[in-house]
């Protein structure tokens, strides 16, 4: 640009601006401090022989650790299954106009949310001292089937009941919030079309409530994965207990706790990715264009330019100009 036309708007397309960017000295100082701290941490982790990284490497794929991991995953999955389905039922009960149903659900949530999950686990474990036998039959009448409680409820089932029934109380509140977030007009529209209560809930309300329900449910699942470590206290051999069994023998406490932590961290990371994709699925209709997946983001980063959204994500009729 020459100095003669200073102040006047140059004709045609404006040129790309060439300006000296603002300097951020604070950022550099901050980065240096963090880098120093990180170096100190790595130094401490690598030079302190007490970490015994070779022991970590030796036990990370140990068969009893892997078995414990399997039990942990199984417990997480089944407890969440009980929790989510129980939560949906409890939430619908709480919103029911029937006062018996809604107060029963309220009472359940009050009890199971109001006592520690560890206490509940111990309760289920010691159920045999409360009732020696469990039987199925006519209420107050003869029994068709009877078994000692400790056989009917083995350790794994006790753990499952403790975790799952407790989770149901939390999920009930999450689901209730989701259902109540759907506007009343949706129910009215479905009813006006002749849809039944059940179909309205299943086809119209719950799918929309999912968008509100999924993120906290993901948090609950990640939290559950870690809460399963509590069942080590009733001697069920899950991931933590498997580690404890080894270090009680070898006294290599820290390395085994690191082994266990690595597995927990890996599992929660995977769950985080799964949660992202489920959330994306239920965002249909709420977002005009779905956000790119991490894979698409990665490709964009390497290509250095925006990647067009995947074909099925393009809003039909909106590709050109987006006139509505």
């Amino acid at each position: 640009m020459n100095s003669s036309d200073q102040g006047s708007v140059p004709p045609g397309r404006p040129e790309t601006l060439k300006a000296v960017p603002v300097r951020h000295p604070g950022r550099w100082v901050g980065a240096a401090v963090v880098a120093l701290l990180a170096a100190m941490l790595i130094h401490a982790l690598t030079t302190n022989p007490q970490f015994q990284w070779d022991v970590v490497g030796k036990y990370i794929f140990d068969s009893s650790i892997l078995h414990g991991l399997g039990v942990t995953l199984e417990l997480t999955f089944l407890s969440m299954l009980i929790g989510v389905s129980g939560g949906v039922i409890l939430a619908i009960m709480r919103l029911s106009p029937n006062p018996v149903l809604s107060s029963t659900a309220w009472f359940y949530i009050w009890v199971f949310r109001g006592t520690p999950v560890l206490v509940q686990l111990l309760f289920w474990n010691f159920l045999g001292t409360l009732w020696a036998n469990i039987s199925i039959g006519i209420p107050f009448g003869p029994a068709f089937w009877s078994q000692p409680t400790n056989e009917a409820i083995p350790l794994f089932v006790a753990a499952l009941l403790g975790l799952g029934l407790n989770e149901a109380a939390y999920m009930a509140e999450i689901v209730r919030g989701g259902i109540q977030s759907v506007p009343l007009g949706q129910t009215e529209a479905a009813h006006a079309l002749g849809m039944s209560q059940f179909n309205t809930m299943r086809r119209i309300i719950l799918p929309q409530a999912m968008r509100v329900i999924i993120p906290p449910t993901g948090n609950e699942t990640i939290s559950m994965l870690k809460t399963t470590s509590l069942v080590s206290s009733i001697a069920l051999e899950e991931l933590l207990r498997a580690g404890q069994n080894i270090y009680s023998r070898t006294f290599q406490t820290i390395p085994l706790l690191i082994v266990v932590s690595i597995w927990y961290l890996l599992m929660t990371s995977i769950l985080t990715v799964v949660q992202y994709y489920i959330e994306r699925h239920y965002a249909r209709g709420a977002n005009r264009v779905l956000p790119p997946t991490p894979l698409q983001r990665l490709r964009r980063l390497f290509a250095g330019r925006p990647v067009p959204p995947a074909k099925d994500d393009v809003v039909p009729g909106l590709e050109g100009g987006g006139h509505v």
Binding site: Q186, E188, Q208
Partner: peptide, 21 residues
């Protein structure tokens, strides 16, 4: 519900199901 099948209703705020095309 059976009787409502024969009566169509259009609302002020449309009330379309947002999660469906």
């Amino acid at each position: 519900a059976q009787k409502r099948r024969d009566i169509g209703m259009v609302f002020q705020h449309f009330n379309l199901f947002p999660h469906m095309t």
